[in-house]
């Protein structure tokens, strides 16, 4: 497939697709897309509209980004995976996830992408806990994040400090793996495990995040507890599953 709105084909530079999953983010999308486009004209930007009920689609279209609208809400995992599939089918070298709610500032995206390319890792995770400052979430959430980070660090023998961060860049190898195997609801933690089990290398890079500007988080209150249980079980089950080595 060569009909992508391609940029940078054939000049030796890696082709990067910025995946912006968005569920009812009409408020924050225009600024985010404009920032992404001005900072990284060499990237392609694809908004994955996850069955939003507000004007997300129109906002994305006006901003000039590629818009892929899922006919029904699949959840963050299904939306991001759609981006991975596009990256896989259209031969992108790098896919970077930038959440549509404005938590991942555009001026930090290259840090994650560069970390991926410079370290030769398969997955680079933007961590808000590795030095630097910026928004670090509430105490209870930090405890949850730290729990999963320690768990994953122990399994993967790599220091992971921000296991739930969705601010990630992945290379071709990881794109092909995760396009076919990505969890539905809260995929971040599980994906690290899936990647590790397939023999992929994971690194972290310090980034700053922002508190969301508009909309509301998908995880809050009672759901935090359910998040902890669900993700813990998912990690345990992922450990049980048969290994699928990456090609």
């Amino acid at each position: 497939m060569n009909d992508s709105p391609a940029s940078g084909v054939g000049n030796g530079k890696p082709r990067v697709l910025a995946i912006v999953p968005a569920y009812n983010e009409a408020g924050s999308l225009p600024t985010l897309i404009a920032d992404l486009k001005s900072h990284y004209p060499q990237y392609d930007v694809a908004v994955i509209n996850d069955g939003s009920t507000d004007d997300t689609a129109a906002a994305a279209r006006r901003s000039g980004a590629r818009l892929v609208s899922l006919p029904c809400n699949l959840g963050i995992g299904g939306a991001v995976q759609t981006g991975f599939r596009i990256a896989r089918d259209e031969g992108y070298d790098v896919a970077v996830q930038v959440d549509g709610d404005g938590q991942h500032p555009a001026d930090q995206v290259h840090l994650v992408v560069n970390a991926l390319l410079e370290t030769g890792s398969d997955i680079a995770i933007g961590s808000r806990f590795l030095g630097g400052d910026g928004y670090r979430s509430t105490l209870s959430r930090r405890m949850g994040i730290s729990f999963f980070s320690r768990w994953l660090s122990a399994i993967c023998h790599t220091r992971i400090t921000d296991a739930t961060s969705g601010f990630r860049a992945i290379n071709r190898r990881a794109i092909e793996l995760l396009a076919g195997d990505y969890a539905e609801d809260y995929p971040e933690v599980e994906a690290v495990l899936v990647a590790h089990r397939a023999g992929l290398r994971i690194c972290e890079v310090p980034v700053q995040m922002a508190a969301r500007t508009t909309g509301s988080s998908s995880i809050g209150g009672l759901r935090s507890a359910s998040y902890m249980v669900k993700v813990s079980l998912a990690v345990l089950m992922a450990s049980l599953r048969k290994r699928r080595p990456a090609r």
Partner: peptide, 10 residues
């Protein structure tokens, strides 16, 4: 769902 969205965009 994913394939449909991708085809629709194309």
């Amino acid at each position: 769902t994913q394939e449909l969205a991708m085809l629709h965009e194309r």
